[in-house]
Simulated scan of single mutants.
Amino acid sequence: MELTTQQRNESISNATNALLFEDDYLHIKNAIDQLHLLFAGVTGVNAGNITDQDIHLPSGKAVSTIKAAHCLMEIDRTRKFLRGIHQAINHILDKRPNQTINILYAGCGPYATLLTPLTTIFTAQQVRFTMLDVNAASLDAARLLYKELGILDYVTDFVCTDATHYQLSANGSIDMIISETMLNALRKEPQLAIMNNLVPQLNPDAIFIPEHITVEAVLTRWEEEYKYFITPDYQPKRIKAGLVYRADRKFQLPKPVVIHAPASETHNRLDLFTEINVFGGEMLKTYNCSLTMPLAVCKLENQNEDIAVTFEYVMSDNPGFTCTF
């Protein structure tokens, strides 16, 4: 039996409340499954087998419609981003309770995953969205979803374009930008190219989500990382080598940085660790999701002394950090 618009919105509301306010893992997983079932049913885009193709841009890969749908299914990723964005909206509303918050979602995907649930929390007088995606199929799906849910009044515009070239309106009406277009260690996808274009256009008091992203060089040992997965609450022993890059509201593209990896008889793998602070302390830490999985750089065999490693970020159609010794 097909659900009515009211039943759909009640279902989204229940799932959203679980994601924002509950800590029971099963309830949160059920909420994700509930949202996927509803969004897939309305849009026809199912986070199943990936049969479509990514879009390759000069600044990196824009993921396919089905891959973008899959992002919803990463439980910690979805709930941490939703909780952070919820906090960020409330932060602005506390300062300006009677004004509408205008949010640009750069890379909204077919479900507009990080905003659609919040339509059950905030009114269309409180928040308005500009949905942007370079993938026309994803944008069409998002438009259909909002139409079928009866929430088109939340949307100022649907824009099909490359966010690395998009120009904000000169009136400075955007209060928040959300762009979650990255992989671990900021490789392959155009997160930094998007930030490089959009952050300088923002008013000083506007918010960019995520609030900051850090990439750090760390020496690891396989046995220690393995214990993390098999031993409850185990804290693996790691050797921090240094900060490679931090992206935040005071945006600058990465500059070459020299990290001195200390000599170690036990820790012989050099990895890049990514951490993401969405907003207000809502953090995605190592192993929380695909965005924060360690990225292996190399093995350091027979390391008897410190090794200087230069990391340099390459902006291209396949962006990411390169390293030289």
Rank of each mutant, 00 (worst) to 15 (best):
E225G: 01
L243N: 05
G281D: 00
D233F: 12
L93S: 12
K237A: 09
N304D: 14
G281Q: 00
A18G: 00
V199F: 02
D233S: 14
K188Q: 10
L38S: 13
A69G: 06
N171C: 11
A68L: 02
G109H: 01
L3T: 11
Y228D: 02
D157W: 13
L57Q: 10
P97W: 09
T322V: 03
N9D: 13
L20C: 04
P110D: 04
L300E: 13
F273Q: 04
F39E: 01
L295I: 06
L132T: 03
V218E: 05
P204R: 08
V159E: 03
D157Q: 15
M283H: 15
E2P: 15
I28D: 09
V134P: 02
A88G: 10
H86G: 10
L300F: 12
G41W: 02
E301D: 11
D153T: 04
L93G: 09
K237V: 09
L26C: 05
N304Q: 15
T100A: 05
G84K: 12
T266A: 07
I85F: 14
K67R: 15
D175T: 02
N98S: 14
N268E: 14
F325G: 13
E211V: 10
T292N: 07
Q235P: 11
V42Y: 01
V309G: 10
M283P: 13
Q126L: 10
T16C: 01
N277T: 12
N90V: 06
L192E: 11
P262D: 05
T324W: 11
S290A: 13
T164Q: 10
N14T: 01
F39M: 01
T324N: 15
T43W: 00
N14Q: 05
D153L: 03
E275P: 08
T161Y: 05
I209A: 09
I103N: 12
F311S: 01
E2Q: 14
D52G: 12
F21P: 00
F321V: 03
G150N: 04
A261S: 09
N46Q: 05
V297R: 09
K285M: 08
